[in-house]
Amino acid sequence: MILPKFNYKKAEDIAAAIALYEKAKGRARYLAGGTDLIPRVKLRLSTPGTIIDLKGIEQLHTISRQRGSLIIGANVTLFELKNHDVVKNHFPALYESLDATSCETLQMRGTIGGNILQNTRCLLYNKSLEWRTARGFCYKMGGESCNVVPGASECFSNYCSDNALSLLSLSASVNLAGPGGERKIKLEKLFSGNGRDPFTMRPGEILTEIRVPVKASSGAYEKLRVRNAIDYPLLGVAVSIRNGSGRVCVGGIGPAPRVYPLKDLSKTSLKEVAQHARQEAKPVSNAALSPGYRKKMVQTLTQRAVKRALKEEK
């Protein structure tokens, strides 16, 4: 499948990228690793007039430590991040989720910013224009209904980043820069919960960096998938624990990840969190395995991830 025509611009710095975006009057997309955007453009799921390449922006490609936080530039590749000492030594959940992302070849191409900002997915959505036209446009394509759940009023597409889940479990925040200036938000605030438009980003905003408090944690990432590589999560559960409390994050089901605090590590509260997460998960028939199974696995994998995290804690 060939790409449609678009203008290609390469930005030298963040300000230049934003200026290019404004010049394109909003009909532009930012490009980092391209592992999410290029397939989407090929399928005509995204038809930007201009693609603004951020790969040349040095500032986005650094990892540093500042005031107790690890500052990760959005263009750091998943592979580079996976092999960073702080990640290896302090953030086991993040290390595991990075390692579980696709395959090493794509980890070397995909960036952490792009991985967080990947669009939501659905078996009936990530298809060619011909396929989608024949099937009829759904909410996410600008249509009037959901093709998976007839009569539904919302879009059930799945957010499939592995690494957003572990970053959420580590209480990460993100920096955004756009035409209206810079802002810093907690990572959980990035998600709109609306599958049609899953992020709360404002037009022209660029995710510039991710900040993670550098405190040793114990943790784990559990991923449900059919094959041992390449596949997106059918469910992902990240757990990170620091000083007797922690966070559980469940994703891969629905348009936004869900975060659950682990106030203490008692058996009862752990069980409650796993059950609660299962109750709240609303999978539908839009991914490879049955929705009933994916729902059941929320509890199973949460318990498993917590168990592994606690084992490390000891």
């Binding site: 078996l123 009936l124 990530n126 298809k127 396929w131 024949a134 099937r135 093709n147 059919v226 094959r227 041992n228 590589a229 390449i230 596949d231 997106y232 490879a288």
Partner: peptide, 21 residues
């Protein structure tokens, strides 16, 4: 996988050919 007459996995991402691993 089918949705009535529509093939849901006409690609190598969702059609799960076993990988080396």
């Amino acid at each position: 996988l089918w949705d009535h007459g529509f093939l849901l996995n006409p690609d190598l991402l969702e059609y799960k050919v076993p990988l080396a691993c």
